[in-house]
């Protein structure tokens, strides 16, 4: 079963809002799932609590956003991979703690800017963005604190943090592909993002990664439903139980 929503061909305003909500909702849903995979594996107990807090905030955002589009569970559990609109960055596997922190830094910085600008618009997502931006500010702070400690910690942590930042760099360009229904200044967001991330990396004694911010064929891919290999596996695990009992309530 798939949803009837087809954002590309729909012109009316509700559908455009729904497409935007789906993109942001999928980002939050998928990143929340990845962070949930840390449960029981965090490097220190205090981080178990911190990572779960972030995952729960994101899951809460996802549920609100997906509910604007349709039934949250149908959307989460019954769509095929190609129907997900999240950016590829959030679906990347956790890797080590530094890798997860790099992903958090890149994404939470983006999300905070995006929600911040969105909250200033008079669009239908403004109210939700205003609430979410407070949560996301904390996620960004968490990511920055750890980026600095790992980058400017031991030689090993520095290397790991640099590797994490480098490896995920090519997934960062995609975030700034304009999303239909979100009427904000995308180039301005990208410039602010770059300035913010650069400042943190410098404070962390890390090099700003060089190289392309998008893959050769993948520009804007996640938003159009093209994902990376690990995402299929993630969805298989996430959806398996729900799909095994068609029509059941939980």
């Amino acid at each position: 079963m798939t949803t009837s929503l087809n954002p590309a061909s729909s012109a009316d305003a509700d559908a455009v809002t729904a497409a935007a909500a789906l993109a942001l909702g999928d980002d939050a849903l998928v990143l929340s799932h990845r962070l949930g995979e840390w449960a029981g594996h965090a490097p220190v107990l205090e981080e178990e609590v911190a990572l779960a807090n972030i995952a729960l905030d994101l899951l809460g955002q996802a549920r609100v956003l997906l509910s604007l589009v349709g039934d949250e569970d149908e959307l989460a559990y019954l769509r095929e991979e190609r129907a997900f609109r999240n950016v590829q960055l959030v679906e990347q596997p956790n890797g080590d703690f530094a890798h997860t922190i790099a992903r958090q830094l890149y994404f939470s910085t983006y999300q905070r800017l995006l929600y911040g600008r969105l909250a200033e618009t008079d669009g239908p997502l403004a109210g939700l963005a205003a609430k979410a931006v407070k949560e996301v500010a904390y996620h960004q702070d968490h990511a920055e604190q750890w980026t600095v400690r790992l980058g400017d910690g031991t030689a090993e942590s520095h290397d790991r943090m640099q590797q994490g930042c480098d490896a995920l760099w090519r997934h960062t360009g995609e975030m700034f592909q304009p999303v239909d229904g979100i009427d904000i200044d995308w180039p301005e967001i990208e410039a602010s993002w770059t300035a913010s991330v650069t400042a943190v990396l410098e404070r962390a004694t890390l090099a700003v990664p060089e190289g392309p911010r998008t893959g050769a064929w993948s520009a804007g891919a996640g938003r159009q439903g093209l994902h990376t290999e690990p995402f299929g596996r993630m969805l298989a695990e996430m959806q398996h139980l729900h799909r095994s009992h068609p029509g059941a309530s939980w």
Binding site: G36, E37, A39, A55, L56, D73
Partner: peptide
């Protein structure tokens, strides 16, 4: 935590994550 990634609804998933977090 073995079931967080397979929780069959988003509501159950949120509850389970919050519970496992409480245990930490």
């Amino acid at each position: 935590a073995n079931w967080i990634t397979r929780a069959p609804s988003l509501r159950r998933k949120a509850i389970l994550m919050a519970k496992v977090q409480d245990e930490a």
